[in-house]
Amino acid sequence: MQLYNKLSAKERAELIEKAGKDRLTLSFYQYAKIKNPHEFRDHLFVTWNTLDVLGRIYVALEGINGQLSLPADRFNEFKEHLDTIDFLKDIRLNIAVEQDNMSFLKLKVKVRNKIVADGLNDDTFDVTNKGIHLKAEDFNKFIEDENTVLVDMRNHYESEIGHFKNAVTPDVDTFRESLNIIEEDLKEHKEDKNLVMYCTGGIRCEKASAYFKHKGFKNVFQLEGGIIEYTRQVKEQNLENKFLGKNFVFDERRAEKISDDIIAKCHQCGEPFDVHTNCANDACHLLFIQCDKCKAEMENCCSTICMEINRLPFEEQKAMRKGQGNSNDIFNKGRADHLPYKKDLRNIFDHFKNEEA
């Protein structure tokens, strides 16, 4: 029984190219009590591997979180399999705004402690007491209300390239960081303001809305299905699109274009640009925004030092790294002192205070 990948990303890409079939990229999540995550994980891998599913799926005692792609002509088979699982029957599947056959190149089904790293003790509050879900039309109305505080529950590198008009975008590296910041900065408005949240597909807001209700916020709302579902409803119902820029995604596409607005800038020269890249130096691998001109001049590197290292023969680079470990930048996303135009720090309270002034 095959329970792991046997092909490299390069080999998989070649097979996809050779097959010549269109693939669908989609995502879904569900909070549910899974008694044996390891057994469930193996069942999913075996079944989905036969359907040529590729992607990144997390399974935990609390549920499942999946981002994946599959051949478009096998979608019905995939959906039929989901419907055989009680808590996944008729689940909403967020179909990607922009499709790319190479969005995922491996099938990874992993057992985790949580399907989203939120740092919360779920035993201390009722995770099922969630906020009110808003569809796109109602969401548009709410965010124009002066009594609404709209908060982006994503990380700084996600909101930097795209966010909703008038949204507060916490300058955080992880979801768990934003929870305490939001509670502290909005503690004086737990009863008199509407706290409206959004994220990529809705999963972060599911837990956050329950947490903030537990913390005393009276009027808690969340965008149903996140930015992905919002975009679908806007197009389907011909609604005004209030999202500016791109939606960051965690696959090979890196982003989906939601509007023509370019709200970010190249981290090296400051010109308007919103495409992320990874530094070509494998010991750095920093994720940052780099325009085409800088990419050519800097050879897809984030600094002259990385460029010089990347020019060395591979074996020499490997020898230099031996025993040294990777640079901390390998874990960073748009955070490096040598990037002169990295995103400026933003504070929720200062933003909100300016809105009230």
Rank of each mutant, 00 (worst) to 15 (best):
L3E: 14
K6E: 13
L7A: 14
A9P: 02
A9C: 13
A19C: 06
A19P: 09
K21F: 13
T25S: 11
T25V: 15
S27I: 13
F28W: 12
Y29I: 12
K35G: 02
K35R: 09
P37Y: 03
P37K: 01
H38P: 03
V46L: 14
T50W: 08
V53K: 10
I57E: 10
G63R: 00
G63W: 00
I64N: 01
G66R: 07
G66I: 07
D86L: 11
D86I: 12
D90T: 12
R92F: 01
A96M: 09
V97N: 08
E98M: 14
S103D: 14
L105G: 12
L105V: 10
L107G: 01
K108V: 02
K110A: 15
G119Y: 04
G119C: 03
N121T: 11
N121P: 06
D122F: 12
V127W: 04
T128E: 13
K130C: 02
I132L: 12
E137A: 05
K141L: 10
I143G: 09
T148I: 06
R154Q: 03
H156L: 02
I161G: 01
A167G: 02
A167L: 01
V168K: 04
P170W: 10
D171P: 00
R176K: 03
L179G: 03
N180I: 00
E183D: 15
E188F: 11
H189L: 08
K190L: 13
M197L: 15
G201P: 04
C205D: 09
E206V: 09
K207V: 09
K215G: 03
G216M: 08
F217A: 05
F217C: 10
Q222E: 11
Q222H: 08
I228A: 12
Y230M: 04
Y230L: 06
Y230G: 04
E236F: 07
L239E: 04
F248Y: 15
A255C: 09
A255K: 03
K257I: 12
I263W: 07
H267S: 05
C269G: 01
P272C: 00
F273H: 07
V275A: 07
T277V: 05
C279G: 12
N281G: 09
D282H: 06
D282F: 04
L287F: 06
N300L: 01
T304M: 11
I305P: 00
M307S: 11
E308H: 09
L312F: 02
L312G: 08
K318T: 15
M320P: 08
K322P: 04
G323W: 10
I330D: 01
H338I: 00
H338L: 04
H338Y: 13
Y341V: 06
D344N: 07
R346M: 05
E355V: 14
